[in-house]
Design a protein around this nucleic acid. Sequence first.
DNA 1: CCTTGCAGCTCTAGTCGCTAGAGAGATTAG
DNA 2: CTAATCTCTCTAGCGACTAGAGCTGCAAGG
Lengths: 148, 148
Amino acid sequence: MLSIGRLSQETGVKVPTIRYYEQIGLMPAAERSSGNQRLYGAAARRRLSFIRHARDLGFPLEAIRDLLGLSDQPDQPCTAVDAIARAQLATIRSRIARLQALEDELMRMIGQCAHGKIAECRVIEVLGDHGQCAHDHHGTFDDAGPGR
Amino acid sequence: MLSIGRLSQETGVKVPTIRYYEQIGLMPAAERSSGNQRLYGAAARRRLSFIRHARDLGFPLEAIRDLLGLSDQPDQPCTAVDAIARAQLATIRSRIARLQALEDELMRMIGQCAHGKIAECRVIEVLGDHGQCAHDHHGTFDDAGPGR
DNA sequence: CCTTGCAGCTCTAGTCGCTAGAGAGATTAG
DNA sequence: CTAATCTCTCTAGCGACTAGAGCTGCAAGG
Ligand SMILES: [Zn+2]
Ligand SMILES: [Zn+2]
Ligand SMILES: [Zn+2]
Ligand SMILES: [Zn+2]
């Protein structure tokens, strides 16, 4: 049996994160030692590794919850599993597309700046007027911020 | 002078978001009508449009705050402005790179699945074991989630 | 003049996936 | 035994909003 710290080392999931997963019911309540410390066996280790890997691939926790539930029904067809994965792929692709539009626009802005005074800076100018942009990069769907 | 609702329509920024920007000091405290309702002039409109456009390009609010501060000093060289824009470009590019690795891995997973029972599903299998992956897509730096 | 109904006001809490810290108790190495 | 490290619970904070409760303002119709 592993302590939470060892489990953390072995899976690469930080200790408070493991406790958080337990709190939201993504990990089952751990067994406890006589001194009330969490103890984990092989099953918990596998489950946490699965979660970690799915998180690394960008799946949201809710999707992971569903995937874990499905993987407990090994005789069902994997349609639902594959649907979740394809949805995740679609999300990733739409993010990439959006980010590439932003990349383009930023490059243009920066490339056009003559590096003089702020009064003539292309960056400030373009930011003040979307009409100067090449694409319609408006954020209809997610642009995303830092994760882990 | 515009009401908050009209300003919202004209700039595409939602009403609660405008109030939020005021609260965090990104927009100055608006003038008020006799009945305590916010009123906005042309300057506020320009400022909010700038913010909206910068947000659409993925700049974090703190960066936008800096950009707005800089644009009030038109005689300074635009070095700092350009640095912020380049930093943003770098962020975007690292996100794209990461997402492309994820896209690859997801495509592989989905493509290899024979669509049988969950017990044999490649998706579940690969999620359970990063060793089956082609790349080291581990999340050292941001993977991102939904934005607006 | 009065009602109706939308728009606006403030304030609080929730979202996602953690992260950081306080202040206490458990365990382990020397 | 002591000191160092781990672990415990609990709360609060991040970014950038979003949703809702429970008020008030204001314009148009009858
Ligand atoms: Zn410039
Ligand atoms: Zn634009
Ligand atoms: Zn499958
Ligand atoms: Zn992997």
